[in-house]
Computed example of a mutant assay.
Amino acid sequence: MSTTIPILLFAGLADRIGSASLAFPVPVLPVTAGELKQKLSDTYPDAAQQIAVSFVAINQEYALEDQLIQPGDEVALIPPVSGGDGAGEQRPKSAQSPDGTCLITSEKLSVEDTLAKVHDANHGATLSFIGTTREMTGEQRTVTLEYEAYIPMALKELQQICRNISNQWPGTLCAISHRIGTVDIGETSVVIAVSSPHRNDCYEASRYAIEQLKRTVPIWKKEIWDDGSEWKGPQTGPWDPTARL
């Protein structure tokens, strides 16, 4: 008797398959992440190339190919970069980490609110990184951006970035706010606030935060142009989010 695995899909991969979620039949559980990807590729050959470069997430953690999927696990397929036309189901629009340092929201971001989370009277350096939607990329004019996130996993990854910073640069504080939904030209999509007793640590931690966010956090953006659109993942080149920096 076969069983089914509920699978969450995102960005262009959801567009290509035509749904933001699947109840996917498998002969038996457990099954490995790699086996699941192969079965999905066999079932959806038009999406096979995207599936091959995606990572399975099990219970909101990136899984290696040989990791087993057990009954009751939460399973998602995380694409790096993909193209699509915007199909998909509605998902929750706002959430924050239990400690309040990390936020994902469809509301406009406040730089001041994010900075306030890292204020410390004993810190001599505070930096904010503010990412905004730019209109021109070379010859290409962007009309707007659409952001999508696997919110619970994205929050976990953002919290991990903050913990890594605290471990690597002791005493340094970090808070991250990220926008989802429509972000128009000139509007803010991400705010990273870092404070530290010393400025060198502050600079290094801030750079680490944005680079790690782009490498591991399951947030995608869809660039909408005058003549089309394309989903863009945060990752470029060979992508392995399981390799922690």
Rank of each mutant, 00 (worst) to 15 (best):
Val111Asn: 00
Ser189Glu: 09
Tyr150Cys: 01
Leu145Lys: 09
Ala14Gly: 13
Thr105Cys: 07
Leu109Trp: 03
Gln70Phe: 12
Pro6Thr: 07
Leu77Arg: 05
Thr43Ala: 15
Val75Lys: 03
Arg134Ile: 14
Ile151Met: 10
Leu173His: 11
Gln96Met: 12
Ala20Val: 01
Ile224Asn: 09
Ser166Thr: 14
Gln60Pro: 01
Glu204Asn: 15
Pro98Lys: 04
Lys93Leu: 13
Gly124Phe: 06
Gly18Ile: 01
Gly88Phe: 03
Gly186Val: 06
Asp46Tyr: 14
Gly186Trp: 01
Asp85Ala: 15
Glu157Leu: 11
Tyr44Gly: 08
Asp226Asn: 12
Arg199Gly: 04
His119Asp: 11
Glu204Gln: 15
Thr188His: 02
His123Arg: 07
Asp99Cys: 08
Gly138Tyr: 06
Asp184Cys: 05
Thr43His: 13
Asn59Asp: 14
Pro234Glu: 10
Val118Asn: 06
Ile69Asn: 08
Leu77Asp: 07
Pro218Asp: 08
Val28Ser: 15
His119Gln: 12
Ser196Pro: 08
Ile58Gln: 08
Leu127Met: 13
Pro234Val: 00
Ile7Lys: 06
Gly84Thr: 00
Ser128Thr: 02
Ile104His: 04
Glu157Tyr: 04
Ala154Cys: 14
Tyr62Asp: 05
Ala175Val: 07
Glu89Met: 10
Thr32Ser: 15
Glu65Cys: 02
Ala20Pro: 10
Trp239Ile: 01
Ile51Ala: 05
Leu109Gln: 04
Arg163Ala: 14
Ser97Cys: 07
Val28Lys: 12
Ile165Thr: 12
Glu74Arg: 06
Asp73Leu: 05
Ile58Glu: 06
Thr216Gln: 10
Glu135Val: 08
Glu74Tyr: 02
Asp99Trp: 04
Pro152Ala: 05
Glu135Gly: 01
Ala20Cys: 08
Thr242Lys: 03
Glu148Gln: 14
Val75Phe: 01
Leu9Asp: 09
Ala52Trp: 03
Gly138His: 11
Tyr203Ser: 06
Asp46Ala: 15
Glu146Asn: 13
Val194Gly: 12
Ser41Met: 12
Phe129Arg: 01
Trp231Glu: 03
Ile219Lys: 00
Glu157Asp: 08
Asp99His: 08
Gly233Val: 05
Ala47Ser: 15
Ile185Ala: 03
Lys214Tyr: 11
Glu148Cys: 04
Ser128Ala: 15
Ser54Leu: 03
Ser41Tyr: 03
Leu115Ala: 12
Leu77Val: 13
Ala121Ile: 09
Thr126Pro: 10
Ala175Gln: 02
Phe10Asn: 07
Leu68Gln: 15
Ile180Tyr: 05
Glu61Ile: 00
Ser196Ala: 12
Pro234Thr: 01
Ser189Trp: 03
Ser196Gln: 05
Glu61Ser: 10
Gly88Asp: 04
Val143Phe: 09
Glu146Cys: 06
His123Pro: 08
Ile58Pro: 10
Glu223Leu: 04
